[in-house]
Design a protein around this nucleic acid. Structure first.
Length: 154
DNA sequence: GCCAACGTTGGC
DNA sequence: GCCAACGTTGGC
């Protein structure tokens, strides 16, 4: 049984289409610099888990697609690179602070499910997205996942 | 571009 | 350990 997650990304920096066009449609989910999100990536996100790909900080924020985890948590090496915008001198290969996973594009939703729409669904009112709006990696319950799939036309 | 929410940092 | 200052996120 896979677990379900919601990963946020600003489409201006990395969009669903960007993921789709990567080699093998696969990319590192790097740059997460929040401890609670880090804990999920390091401890709970597993190969085969299904991910709602969410576009944030854009004209129509919402869930736009589905991705799948193809590698579970391992040290985020961008933290070790002084030239990376995600560089963190407090993290080292010996004692990494930050973790990432790899995800692969699965599909675009038949239609996006916007944040505004999600807010109107009573069964979804418990979602972290609606209550803990800044968490960029967050668990999604199976019922919530299925409800969103139906909203998307799947 | 504004600004509220909120996570993080650092002085004490 | 508290909490004010600060920086970032992200909706609008």
């Amino acid at each position: 049984m896979p677990n379900y997650w919601l990963f946020k990304s600003e489409p201006s920096s990395f969009s669903l289409d960007d993921l789709k066009s990567r080699p093998d449609a696969t990319e590192h989910w790097d740059g997460v610099r929040n401890f609670q999100a880090r804990n999920f990536l390091r401890d709970q996100v597993q190969v085969g888990d299904q991910v709602l790909f969410y576009h944030s900080n854009t004209a129509e924020p919402g869930v736009v697609g589905i991705a799948e985890v193809v590698r579970s948590g391992y040290p985020d090496f961008t933290a070790f690179d002084p030239n990376s915008k995600y560089f963190d001198p407090k993290s080292s290969p010996e004692r990494p602070t930050w973790y990432m996973v790899d995800v692969r594009f699965v599909r675009e939703l038949p239609r996006p499910v916007t944040l505004a729409e999600l807010r109107t669904i009573p069964e979804l009112s418990g979602m972290a997205l609606l209550n803990r709006s800044r968490l960029s990696v967050q668990p999604v319950r199976e019922e919530e996942w299925e409800r969103i799939m139906r909203l998307a036309g799947l």
